[in-house]
Write a protein that binds this DNA or RNA. Structure first.
Lengths: 349, 349
DNA sequence: CGCCGCTGCTCATACGTATGAGCACATCTG
DNA sequence: CAGATGTGCTCATACGTATGAGCAGCGGCG
C-alpha cells in the first residue's frame, strides 16, 4: 500500500513525494511544457511512474481556478431541452454543437437549473451566474430573456446566441441565418425566371428575422430595377381577400411570402379565383418548409446543424481573442428548389 | 464608475472593500449561514447592496475547490448523444435525467470529449478523468467500456450505470430494468389465463439482461409448478423450424420470447403450420415493443424516463452518503397488454 | 470590581494547480 | 581562472472561497 491519504484523491504533492521531487516539478512534467521545463528524461519517467502508481488525476476545479480555462462550453436553453429535442428546432442545433465540441475537445455543460419552479430557466440563479462555470456558452431558445442577455453581456461573459436578439445598449453576439441574403437569392431566382412584377407578403408581426428578410427583398428589387407594388410591403400587413384581389388585378407574376402559413393561405385564395401556381403566379417562401405542406414550396433552408457548429467555433474564437469586440455572424441559407416557381407568364407570351 | 478591476469579474474581496467589511464577512452573508454567522441586518444589507452594485457572482471553480461540491451531475455516453437522441433509447433516459436534475437544482455536464478520433468516447483522456469535474455521473450507452467502469469504480468516483454491467472484481452500481420481475409477471399473467404448458424462446446471445429474464422465468415456472419443456430453455438456443415443430407436437400453449425479433419469427412459423396466435398458442415478449410490429404483443415496457430520474436520485444519494456501499437498483417494468395472450386452449375444452 | 458570555466581526489558512523568479551546480569560453 | 551560459530543479505565490479560531467591546451578574 502506498501512503495515500485516506479516501482522498492524490494530488501533485503526493506524486512529488513519491517521485522525490517538488510539486512544481510534477506540474511541469504534466504540462509537458517542453521549452521552459528543462526536465530530463529520467526524472520525467520517475514522475510518470509515480502518477501511474497513485492513479493521480488532475483536479479540474483547481486547474480552472488557476487557468481560468476549463475546456467546457455551456449550453443554455431557456426551456428544457429534451422534451423538445425531437423537434427539429433544438435537435439539429444541438447535433451541430455536440459534434463540434467533440471535435475541438470541449465538453458540454447543459445548464438545467431553473430559478423559479415555473419552467422558465434563468441564467442568474440567486445572483449566481451558473454559466460562469463554463469558459463560454451558446444560448438558444424561443423564449429568450433579453434582460439576462443584457446582463451577461455587461458582465463580459463570452457567449453567442443562436438567432438574432437585439437589446438596446448591448451588442449581443449572435449566429444568425442570413435571411437577408436568402431573400436576395430568392428574388434573383425569380428574376432569373423572367419575373419583373413582384409582390411581398408579410407577417403581421414585427420581429428581427422578418426585418432582415424585408431588407433583403427591398434591396434586390431595387438593384434589379423590378417593380414592386405589393400592398403589404407598403405598410399594411397580413393577408386579406382584398390583398389577393389587388394582386390578381395588378398583374404581378411573383409573390415572395414570409412564411409557409401565408403562402398556403395565398395558394388557397388564388385557387378559388382560378389562378394557378406556378403557371400564372410563382410563389416563393422565406422560411424553412417541412413535410406535409400542400405544395413543394420554393423556399429556403435553415442550416441548423451548421449553425450549431459555427456557434461553438464562435465561442472558442471569443475565448482565444478576448479583446476583439464580439461580432454577430451570418450563416448563408441554401435556397431549396420546389415546384412553385416557373417562368414568368409575360415572358412566355 | 466603481473601482472594479479591469476586465475581471468582481470577487468577494471587492465587495468587502466597498461594503467596508472583510472578505470573510461577505462570504458569511452569502452563505446565509444563519447559525454561526452573527451578522446584523444592517451589515447584511450593506453587503448585499455592494454585491448588487458590483454585479458580483460567485466563482464556481473556487467554490468547488473549497467544498468539493459543484451541484453538477455528469452524463457520459459512450457514443455521441444527439445523432441518436431521437431514438427512444437515449432520448427517454435523458428526458428523465434532465427533468430530475432540474428539480433537484443540479446542472448537467454532457461529456463529449473523446480520446481517439474513433468516435468511441472514453472517460479517461490522457490520464485525466474528465468526469471528476462533476460531483457524480450517470453513465449509459450501448458500447460501454468495462475497463473504464472498473477504473472509475476503483477510483471511488460516484456514478451509476444505466443498465446492468458486470465487471469481475468490481461492484458497479447500476439502475436496471427489472427484467426478472417482469418475466415473473408475464408468466403469472399467462398462468392466470389457464396456461400450464410453457416454452421459452431464447436469444442466441449471452448477456446480463437475458440472464435476468431467464432467472425470472425459471423461478415463476417452478413456483407455480408449471410444465416447461421448451427445447431452447434446456440449452440449445435460437429459433429453428425444428423448434417450432417440437413446440406444436408437444402441445405447449404458451410461449415466452426474449425479443420481438424472435416472436415475429415464431409467429410466421406458426402461421405456416396453421397454428393461430393467440387462439391456439399465446405468446408474450420480454422486450419493449414499438410501433409497426406485425402483432400487438403482450410485452413489457422499459420505464426509461423513470430510470433516468432514478439514476439521478441514485447519484445524489451516493453523494449524500459516501460511505454506504453502492448498490444497484431495480426498476419495475410495467407489463403492457396486447392481443397475443388468450385463455388456454385446454382450459376451454 | 471582576468575570462571563454574547455580539460582530477579522485573521489566517486550506483547497490543488501553474508559473515567474531564483538558486546551486556544471560546463564552456576567452 | 574569471566569467558567461546552461541545466535541473525548488520556492513562493496567486487564483477565489469557506470556515475554525480568535479578538475587541459591551452588558449583566454576583
Amino acid at each position: 500500500m502506498t501512503p495515500k491519504r485516506r479516501g482522498q484523491a492524490p494530488r501533485q504533492s503526493d506524486v512529488a513525494r513519491l517521485a522525490g521531487v517538488s510539486q512544481s516539478a510534477v506540474s511541469r512534467v504534466i504540462s509537458g511544457d517542453v521549452d521552459s521545463a528543462r526536465i530530463p528524461e529520467e526524472t520525467r519517467r520517475r514522475v510518470l511512474a509515480a502518477i501511474k502508481e497513485l492513479g493521480y488525476v488532475p483536479n479540474a476545479s483547481a486547474r480552472n481556478l488557476r487557468n481560468k480555462r476549463n475546456r467546457l462550453i455551456g449550453v443554455h436553453t431557456f426551456e428544457a431541452v429534451f422534451p423538445h429535442a425531437r423537434d427539429d428546432f433544438y435537435f439539429e442545433f444541438l447535433l451541430g454543437i455536440e459534434e463540434r465540441a467533440e471535435q475541438t475537445g470541449f465538453d458540454l455543460v447543459m445548464f438545467t437549473s431553473t430559478g423559479a419552479g415555473d419552467g422558465r430557466r434563468r441564467v442568474y440563479r440567486d445572483g449566481t451566474n451558473r454559466l460562469n462555470l463554463a469558459d463560454g456558452s451558446v444560448l438558444l431558445g424561443v423564449s429568450t430573456d433579453r434582460a439576462e442577455l443584457a446582463r451577461l453581456w455587461a458582465d463580459g461573459y463570452p457567449f453567442v446566441h443562436i438567432g438574432r436578439r437585439e437589446v438596446p445598449g448591448a451588442e449581443i453576439p449572435c449566429v444568425i441565418p442570413d435571411y437577408r441574403g436568402a431573400a436576395i437569392g430568392i428574388v434573383d431566382k425569380l428574376a432569373g425566371h423572367g419575373h419583373r412584377r413582384f409582390a411581398y407578403l408579410r407577417e403581421p408581426m414585427e420581429m428581427e428575422p422578418y426585418a432582415d428578410r424585408r431588407d433583403g427583398y427591398r434591396e434586390a428589387v431595387e438593384r434589379l430595377g423590378l417593380s414592386d407594388r405589393s400592398p403589404g410591403f407598403r405598410g399594411e400587413s397580413g393577408l386579406t381577400g382584398d390583398w389577393i384581389d389587388e394582386l390578381v388585378r395588378g398583374g404581378e407574376t411573383a409573390v415572395v411570402a414570409e412564411s409557409v402559413r401565408l403562402a398556403e393561405h395565398l395558394l388557397g385564395g388564388l385557387r378559388e379565383r382560378g389562378v394557378r401556381v406556378p403557371e400564372d403566379v410563382s410563389v416563393a417562401v422565406l422560411e424553412a418548409t417541412w413535410e406535409g405542406t400542400s405544395a413543394r414550396w420554393d423556399s429556403l433552408e435553415i442550416p441548423r446543424v451548421a449553425i450549431g457548429r459555427i456557434a461553438v467555433d464562435r465561442v472558442i474564437d471569443m475565448l482565444d481573442h478576448p479583446d476583439q469586440p464580439p461580432e454577430s455572424l451570418l450563416v448563408p441559407c441554401p435556397i431549396v428548389p420546389g415546384t412553385t416557381i416557373a417562368t414568368a407568364r409575360d415572358e412566355r407570351l
